[in-house]
């Protein structure tokens, strides 16, 4: 029941925002102060985490190689899976970030009678992972219509494609549905897959439940609980926030404050959680290094410059006498003693 805590936490957050925003005078706390605080924590925390990571040395050259390394001329190199040049690394990273290429290789292992261990390709995580991430991206881009004025044409175009089925009014966005489907899969996977369930922690469940609650409150606000949801007021508040002159003109429904509060919590929580994989994917040495350790020496930044290299020849020079005495074979014999001549 590890996931129960995440549900309780999100329900508590919903109650705080739902009830708190109804207290007279608390609008500015939930509509202005908390969003500002959250975005500052998000940007500050994100930059802090990246700098902390950038300060950690990479002692070894550890790119994961998944194909033929550069070798003799007549052996074809797998340039994407075993890059040796920066340009190849960039191409590999691009596909990793935009298409989750390493997740595409995901396999499922099972034990059958025999006992026999089998591995088979499992693409579901990749498919629903892509669906979830791209839906989320489209949703974030779509929300920019509340933060900018005048609205550029590309934004209207993205929104038009997202609402192209013209279902209902306000028109149904496809990304709202695909986001929920993606989230449900990712959550169900943590419950159903025994191995994943065993290693899942609260900090795996909480972001899923939180994002789910954000999506559901957004959908409720847009299609169902429309009392006091006047988009003009909301955009006026959002424009005020990004121009540092926030005003809350008319009354806005509680569902809006719940949605905004949950988003603020997500932003504030982001830099201190697993969600930092957004920045971390660029910082991962197994992906962002070229497999060129035979062409270029990788110097460990931790090396103490006072410790000089000590070759075997030097070592033998230092200890030859003792080695001969102990009967250890040496490459160069001791010089013949003078008194024996």
């Amino acid at each position: 029941m590890k996931y129960a805590f995440s549900f309780l936490a999100v329900i508590a957050l919903i109650l705080i925002a739902g009830l708190g925003s109804q207290i007279p005078g608390m609008h500015y706390l939930f509509g202005v102060a908390i969003p500002y605080l959250a975005i500052m924590l998000f940007v500050g925390g994100f930059v802090y985490r990246i700098i902390q990571w950038a300060k950690s040395p990479v002692p070894f050259s550890i790119p994961t190689t998944c194909g033929q390394a550069a070798s003799l001329d007549f052996i074809k190199q797998d340039k994407l899976d075993c890059p040796t040049k920066t340009s190849e690394v960039v191409a590999r990273m691009f596909l990793e970030v935009f298409l989750f290429r390493s997740l595409f290789r995901n396999t499922k292992s099972e034990i059958h009678d025999g006992p026999k261990l089998t591995y088979e390709s499992s693409k579901w995580l990749w498919v629903f992972g892509l669906l979830f991430h791209y839906s989320f991206l489209v949703i974030v881009i779509r929300h920019m219509r509340l933060f900018i004025e005048p609205i550029p044409r590309w934004l209207t175009a993205i929104e038009g494609v997202d609402a192209m089925l013209q279902i209902g009014a306000p028109t149904l966005y496809l990304s709202s549905i695909t986001l929920l489907i993606g989230l449900l899969f990712l959550f169900a996977r943590r419950l159903m897959n025994r191995q994943v369930r065993y290693i899942s922690l609260n900090n795996d469940y909480f972001p899923l439940v939180l994002i789910f609650a954000i999506a559901v409150t957004g959908i409720l606000m847009r299609y169902f609980l429309r009392t006091d949801i006047d988009i003009i007021n909301i955009k006026n508040l959002a424009m005020g926030l990004v121009t540092f002159s926030p005003v809350i003109g008319a009354k806005i429904g509680a569902i809006f404050y719940i949605h905004l509060f949950l988003v603020s919590i997500l932003l504030a929580y982001f830099p201190f959680s697993k969600l930092m994989h957004m920045g971390g994917v660029f910082m991962s040495p197994t992906r962002n290094m070229a497999n060129d350790s035979r062409a270029k020496r990788h110097i460990n930044p931790w090396n103490d410059p006072n410790i000089k290299p000590h070759s075997y020849a030097g070592y033998e020079d230092e200890f030859r006498e003792f080695m001969v005495e102990a009967g250890i074979p040496v490459e160069k014999e001791l010089p013949a003693a003078k008194d024996e001549v």
Binding site: F42, I50, P150, N233, M239, G249
Partner: peptide
């Protein structure tokens, strides 16, 4: 890393510099 972080901050603060501090009138 520093150019990357600058790009990130520019993306996040997109509405701030895009509007140029003009909220417009509802």
């Amino acid at each position: 890393i520093i150019p990357g972080l600058i790009i990130f901050v520019l993306f996040v603060t997109f509405p701030i510099w895009f509007n140029g501090f003009k909220a417009g009138t509802p």
